[in-house]
Amino acid sequence: MTEKIIEVKDLQKWFPIRRSISQFFKGEHNYVKAVDGISFSINRGEIFGLVGESGCGKTTTGKLIMKLLEPTEGTMFLNGEDVTHIEKDELKRYRRNVQMIFQDPYASMNPRFKIRDVMEEPLIIHKLGEDRDARMKMIEKALMEVKLNPPDEFLVRYPHMLSGGQRQRAATARTLLLNPELLVADEPVSMIDLSTRAEILHMMKEVQRDLGLTYLYITHDLSTARYFTDRIAVMYLGKIIEIGDPDDVIDNPVHPYTRALIAAVCEPVAGKVNKPKVVPIKGEIPSAANIPKGCRFHPRCPYAKEECWEKEEPQLQEIEDGHFHACRRWKEVVEEAGRG
């Protein structure tokens, strides 16, 4: 039986926004529903991908898992322990277990610190290593793990002297210092050149295998998600609408939104120039402050029928082993569009 490292249930994050005078007196509120009730769990040693367009709530989910934000509703468990509302010492311990790799390797390091200072800081904060020598040993070991060789050459450099790929390696090494169990990686390669992108993902996978880590990989890029992850969840407007094995989700998508996302991806093959790209979706993503009734995807869905906006919102249902989707008319969709 695989062990769940983190589990979230009906997690919500609503941000209050401006309301009118009459709403104020009636005690009504307006919210941006960034994350609107999601449930999933990540198994130990798994790479879990969270995919979606900007504004779908994937980064907010990452921040909730990092406990940088307090959830509005719902519960979170780390190793079976309720961590929804924890404070101070507990929170500090939690943050050691759950670390983050940020999107922008240029902004996540203090430009006035040398790499050794950048790396030493978390050790000082968490009171690890007796003295400077012990700490430097730990840092060197972490740098070796991410293949920044030889480590002493990198220790004395400033962040601007490193390439984007090297910085993202150093950022990964910094998180490894604290021996985390779960790493939240928010678009770790989207700012890195294509030629080195694969190298970074490869390194992250190697580290994960060697140290038995678990990743939550947040991205908008389905192609790298397929290669990198063990399971992916597709988010739309604050909800997970499809979840499953990457091969199942990408080769046999069920939800019309997943289908549109896949159709929109460019592929390096001949014979597509001067032909319009067919993407079965209408309009633009609505505001999370004003989520459509019924199925939240219905205004953009080419397959939507009355039941989609009149009946209540569809819940995730299992179609085959471990492959879930939230589409009421999935049988018709699959029939009309053909599988795969």
């Binding site: 294509l194 030629s195 389905l222 192609s223 790298t224 390096p268």
Partner: peptide, 11 residues
């Protein structure tokens, strides 16, 4: 460069 470009439909 072409080999480093990820393809969605290739496993």
């Amino acid at each position: 460069l072409l080999a480093a470009t990820p393809r969605l439909h290739a496993k």
